[in-house]
Simulated scan of single mutants.
Amino acid sequence: MGHHHEHNHSVKNIRTAFFLNFGFTIIEIIGGLLTNSMAILSDALHDLGDSLSLGISWYLQKKSDRKGEDNNFTFGYKRFSLLGALINSIILIVGSLFILTQAVPRLLNPQPIEAGGMLILAILGIAVNGMAVLRLQRGKSMNEKVVTWHLLEDVLGWVAVLVVSIVLLFKDIPILDPILSIMITVYVLYNVIRNLKKTLRIFLEAVPDDIDFKEVKTKIASLSGIRSTHHTHLWSLDGEQNALSTHIVVENSLSRTEVISIKQQIQEFVEELNLQHLTIQVDYEDETCCMDDQAEK
């Protein structure tokens, strides 16, 4: 019951943060157009990406109670979050490039900015994102922790907009707006592209960055009774939970008890790899492997 209550609390926290963020994003887009501020519109794009992330996090959090796998998705639904990350990344990259095409020309031809409206939106942005952070900060789920850090970045971005708007109230330096816009957009692009690379690596079933694959194969092959290994594959399901499959060739003289002992040793060794799935196929020396491949060195 305690776990179920905590799960419902996590869903409510993310749902609240989603509606706060999405509602303010609409206000932000309208305000950016009315104040003629590219910095506001740049942050609106960032907040739109956050809203998409929050919406997907909310959806996935609700789905986390369902059965892990079924006849359609035998590995479960872990990669649905990656699909969301991929969609969000593409939207943010396209949007960021559009913002840059609008902001860069303003460096050569700065346009007047409604500093008062910009100031009001900045204060509102800090308040709304701050409320969302406070709401999620009480949560314990990984979803809530990741989203909290994302929203903290938004608060810092709005602090920058606030500072620029105060300067513009006292000094007419309209070029500050496109400069801030470009800085925000470049920062967003940098983080999006970095995360996109990680997402694509997972989609392409690359070995997780924090695991030495050669070491894994060497340790398995060095176990007493194992002649060789082949078809060893290690990949990540969602960036957190990993899967490993391997074929081990054992001596013909090994008993059932000894084979079980070898499998247990492998299981103990790979415990630290955050494995959700482990598959070990045992082949004897005089047995032809069904995959018919050369043993790994």
Rank of each mutant, 00 (worst) to 15 (best):
T218C: 08
D154Y: 00
I27D: 01
F98R: 04
I120K: 04
V155I: 14
S81I: 11
N242M: 04
S57D: 12
W158H: 04
K171A: 13
T35K: 02
I175D: 00
G23C: 06
T185C: 11
L200C: 11
I184V: 10
L152K: 05
R106P: 02
E215L: 15
A206Q: 11
C290G: 14
M142D: 07
L54T: 06
L41I: 15
K171N: 01
N129D: 04
N109S: 14
L196S: 12
S57V: 06
V133M: 09
V104L: 12
I93P: 02
K140N: 07
H3W: 12
L234I: 08
F22D: 01
F170V: 09
A44G: 11
V133N: 06
R138M: 11
Q276R: 10
L100Q: 04
T218I: 09
V186E: 02
T101V: 04
N36L: 11
E272C: 12
I173L: 12
I93D: 03
Y187S: 12
T148N: 07
K63Q: 10
M1Q: 07
G68H: 11
V250E: 03
H277K: 08
Y59V: 13
S236C: 03
T74V: 10
V186W: 05
D65S: 14
R79I: 05
H7Q: 07
H277V: 13
R135I: 15
V161L: 08
A221E: 03
Y284G: 06
C290H: 13
G130V: 09
N21Q: 01
F213S: 12
W158Q: 05
I202T: 10
K219Q: 15
V167A: 10
S261N: 14
D154Q: 00
